[in-house]
């Protein structure tokens, strides 16, 4: 695993977050929302983007399809899907593709 203080790691994480925002907008068909409108620390559910339980299922499928991550424990979802920051960190740690 790359070190968090490594400059390359920081660039890769920034790219991953941008990519993730784009995929979320596309998969969830978030009309009128651009990548720039989503802050890395914004809550994805409730306030912030206001996603719901069906979106959570879409995000689980997105993680599997795009990054090869299977979430077998639904309880994990709550912490992983808190924000783009938490999603990107989990993906960076666990991705298989």
């Amino acid at each position: 695993m790359q070190q968090p203080n490594n400059i390359i790691y920081k660039i890769e994480m920034a790219e991953l977050k941008e990519e993730l925002k784009g995929k979320i907008i596309e998969v969830l068909n978030l009309e009128d929302i651009a990548v720039a409108d989503i802050a890395d620390s914004d809550p994805l559910f409730g306030e912030g983007l206001g996603l719901d339980s069906i979106d959570a299922l879409e995000l689980i499928v997105l993680m599997d399809k795009e990054y090869g991550i299977k979430l077998s424990d639904p309880k994990q979802g709550k912490s992983i899907f808190q924000s783009i920051d938490t999603m990107a960190a989990y993906i960076a740690e666990n991705r298989t593709k």
């Binding site: 069906i54 299922l57 499928v61």
Partner: peptide, 13 residues
Amino acid sequence: DNEEQFLTPTAFI
């Protein structure tokens, strides 16, 4: 396209 994998709920519903 996804060989019966990664099926999401929205389009089906």
